[in-house]
Write a protein that binds this DNA or RNA. Structure first.
Lengths: 157, 157
DNA sequence: TTGAATTTAATCGCGCACGATATATCTTCA
DNA sequence: TGAAGATATATCGTGCGCGATTAAATTCAA
């Protein structure tokens, strides 16, 4: 297939931009998740926080932020909404009042049992073989780590 | 520092989510672009719109939206900001007053010459071989198309 | 031991993303 | 012709995502 994606061309079209490919893929994934998460009453970032808490309860805001690559300016309002929905509690750590501990309520724990439809929905919708799907995921994860390392280096200078 | 060894097994579960891999990759790409686009005074979506216009001038809002997978509720305010910056003009089509034609100003056209640093920044930061990079991009594009087809089918039902 | 530096969340403002809705214009056809 | 429907863009409200700043608690150091 000649010229399907020029490597370094003077005149680059939008579809040649790698960033745009990932950008649109993110939106496509969100649209797959949307109807499934609507049924749970969660947004996609809220779902990610719940997944993180189902895996390990009682995490600090900072700890969650590290896992999700988010900071308190994004997490605090999001966590307050999840608290208002009754899915979790936010309590100051009595041994270090700077920290806020995020812990699931019984309702929040119970919500996990209703996420069956959401698990694996992208794999299913992709129509891909599991092996290829996982390989693609692995390559993306490698790319992400390389980009983060690059940004971290630039931030130092 | 007690207990500094992270719970690797638990973190792996969150990282198992393909959506989360793409989500983080998007953010990592944005962080690579950020300093380069700051120098141009553009946000990342604004940059994408400018790329689309450099590729083809005089597009309608709807036409741009189709290329970018965005609708007027997102595009109209964004285009107004680019117009306020002096990069483009928005004019009603006299033959069909419903349409708004978006066209570059001389300043908007000239901006293209200052995007050298941004072009290929992800490839460079990735440290990947061009061939592998383009193959990964192609696979992602295929996945996106499959997901969009899936969502479109569901929307009909 | 106390004052400075560090750490942790929270707050604020701006710009996207998107569902729902509004408005104006154009098209269709009864 | 003119009323109904379709189309194109704009508006509004909510929730991220993030840079910048603030506030409070803790740690460090002179």
């Amino acid at each position: 297939m000649p010229n399907s994606v020029p490597e370094v061309a003077e005149e680059r079209k939008l579809n040649d931009f790698f960033c745009f490919t990932v950008y649109r893929t993110t939106h496509a994934i969100n649209r797959v998740y949307k109807p499934l998460l609507d049924a749970l009453g969660l947004t996609y970032p809220q779902y990610l926080v719940m997944v993180a808490l189902w895996e390990r309860d009682d995490q600090t805001v900072g700890g969650l932020g590290q896992k999700l690559s988010l900071e308190s300016n994004t997490l605090t309002p999001l966590l307050k909404r999840l608290e208002a929905l009754g899915h979790l509690k936010r309590t100051r750590n009595p041994h270090d009042e700077r920290q806020v501990k995020v812990s699931l309520t019984e309702q929040g724990k119970a919500l996990k049992t209703r996420t069956k439809a959401a698990r694996g929905c992208v794999l299913e919708a992709s129509g891909m073989e599991v092996k290829d799907f996982r390989r693609l995921q692995g390559e993306l994860a490698l790319l992400r780590r390389a980009l983060e390392a690059h940004s971290a280096l630039r931030a130092e200078a």
